[in-house]
Amino acid sequence: MSSSSKTKLDRKLNSYAPLEPTDKTKEFLRDFFKILSPDGKRNLAGDVSGCANDETLRQLVQSIRNGLLIPMKAHGGQTPTEITPSPRSGVEDSIENLKSLNIEPISRSSQSQLRHHCLERDGNKCLATGQYSHSHAHPRNAITTHLEAAHIIPFALGSFQANDGEAVDRHAKIWVNLRRYFPILRNMSFTSEQINSEKNVLMLDSQLHTEFGQFRLIFEATGVAHQYRIKSFPDTATGPIRNLPKNRLVKFRVYKGSWELPDPKLLEIHACIGNFLHMSGQAEIIDKVLKDFQDCGGLAPSGSTNIEDLLAVSGLSLLPSNANETPDSQKPAEKQRPPEKQDTVSGLSLLPPNVDETSHSQKSTEKQRSTENQGRLCAKFSDTENKPWTY
């Protein structure tokens, strides 16, 4: 099946004509194909084959970027407000079918209990380093650290306003993409309502949690039940990983209680996305988009930022991404949002979150631009093992 899917994908991509030397649409789709399961490969090959022309192929790439990758990787649990629609036939029916399930948003009301269950299950220890929670019972002279509950599928992908039609629509679009390319989610009937469940959470050192949440640290299956090899990347912070086992092997087990261990299928999805982000250079590209918005609230001064990607994050909702052991009262105050910045190339004014309705009209104007112009990113990076792409 994978062989025939690859033939189908290659047949379409071989005829693709890049807009310019930096257009890596073909490479993006081929690399994404590599990390998917056979069912995911079949779906992607069908979507590529069904694209009517080169512009719709570029649109497909953008729909995967800001309708799957950016939501999974966005800092602080931010969720995109603009998602490029997939050009595949039947996608609207899939969105409406998912919306008809009336999936309820998750909340933080049960976080304390969830954290207690996972701490009990994991023996009050970090699943990666074996270090004990500083705040809970531990042997005398044991090495301790601050633990946090790390969600495999991010918390933000289940948090939305149920009475907000646009938010419900965005939620459905993201999950249609996830279930399309990772069909195991559909097979295991996993929806966003299950994000706050023990099988989607593992206790990690707070710094490792950051690396895990940014897909700079992944757990790859070894073929032995609940045994994983921890993999890091060139951009992984070196401090947090110094206490990992020398052979990078860990095995999960239930220390107490009857709570489910982190689900291997969910960890496989996380690992697939992590590998793709670094294989393709998308990790650095997406980080740059998010950093440009975080630093200046708009486009990079050089005019190098992808306009469509910034439209996807310019209205991000700032939600903490995962439960941790820090009470809300001790969390730092929200930073004052930066002033408006002007895109000197396009004249588009991109504002930080919670701006007035003027920004919506500016977004509408920008969305009318051709997909060719929206689909390109001119930034270039140096000194990286995986040379990032520009679109």
Rank of each mutant, 00 (worst) to 15 (best):
Q368L: 11
N322Q: 11
M203C: 12
S89N: 12
K231F: 00
T326V: 15
L29G: 01
N200R: 10
A379C: 10
L36S: 00
Y255Q: 13
D47T: 01
V61W: 01
C296K: 12
D47Q: 14
V250Y: 11
Q336C: 01
T144G: 03
A137V: 04
E308R: 04
T344V: 07
A17V: 12
E268S: 14
Q194P: 00
I64H: 02
K99E: 11
L202H: 11
D356W: 08
I64D: 04
I35G: 02
N124F: 11
E211R: 10
L36Q: 05
S110C: 08
A312G: 15
D235L: 13
V254T: 15
K331E: 12
K387S: 10
D31G: 14
I64C: 02
Q368F: 03
T236M: 08
N354Q: 05
I174L: 07
V289I: 14
V176S: 02
N102A: 06
Q342G: 03
D31M: 13
A17K: 11
P262M: 08
E334P: 00
D205K: 07
R229S: 11
A312P: 04
K265T: 06
Q78T: 09
S89Y: 09
L318F: 06
Q78D: 07
E104S: 15
S346W: 05
K380R: 15
E92K: 04
G303A: 09
R88M: 14
R170Y: 01
G213R: 13
C51A: 12
L127I: 10
Q294R: 13
H117T: 10
S2G: 15
D10M: 10
P183A: 12
I269L: 15
I153V: 15
T210L: 09
D328S: 11
T144M: 02
A167M: 12
G347N: 05
L319I: 13
D122T: 06
Q342V: 14
H146I: 07
R88S: 15
D47R: 11
C378D: 09
P320L: 08
E366V: 08
I174G: 01
N187L: 10
R369P: 00
S370V: 06
L36W: 07
S206L: 08
A225C: 08
I70H: 01
L348K: 03
H116E: 14
P183F: 02
G281W: 02
P183K: 11
E27W: 04
A221P: 00
G40W: 04
E193D: 07
L348H: 05
G165R: 13
Y255D: 12
C378P: 00
Y391M: 11
E27G: 08
T236D: 05
H360E: 13
L377C: 14
L290H: 08
